[in-house]
Amino acid sequence: MAREQFHTQLAALEQELLRMGALVEEQIARAVQSLSDRDLALAQAVVDGDDQVDALEMDIERHCLTLLALQQPMAGDLRTVSTALKIITDLERMADHASDIAKITAQIAGEPLVKPLVDIPRMSTVAAYMVRSALNAYVARDVEMALLVIRMDDEVDQLYRQIFQDLLTVMRERPDAVFQASHLLFVANNLERIADHATNLGEWVSYMVTGRRKVPTG
């Protein structure tokens, strides 16, 4: 088989992408954890951890550009490299949202929660699961799994609408809770954005496998 070395480098690229994905997944989980536990130290760790995500993004980006310049990949290999370039942008944005959630923890950690967090951790679990599934789909070239990720976004959207209604009710009933409730709304909004980026991952993986950019709906 020709181009052995190049294909080894492609496999290494996939590993780097998995590592970045695992880190982002962890950032999301820890950000929401810091909120539930009102754990300022953990929140700070998430904010600090964002630099690591950014550094990984730059590493992978450099790796991709080097492969494009030196190896001139074609067909499926070209789609693998260009998909990696797109995926890391989405992952990086997700980590920013995780970091924003951790900053909200710092804002509202001083007061007790107006209500126990149920749907927000649930939303975060689904979003993180979407990230993991999309990256598994990338490595396994599994278009079914990629399409499943895209469909999971509906569940996140539904949770978002639910949280929105609940927090609106809280704010109506307890004017003193408006400050915290509106921050929690931002948290839900950040999670909703994270799931949107995860949906993009699913779409990119589907393109990489099939060569078709448009994802069949329904």
């Binding site: 181009r3 990949p73 074609m74 067909a75 499926g76 290999d77 070209l78 789609r79 099939t210 060569g211 078709r212």
Partner: peptide
Amino acid sequence: TAPRESRTEDYLT
């Protein structure tokens, strides 16, 4: 970028 046939894919890559 997206050949249809797997032999084309294999040759190009």
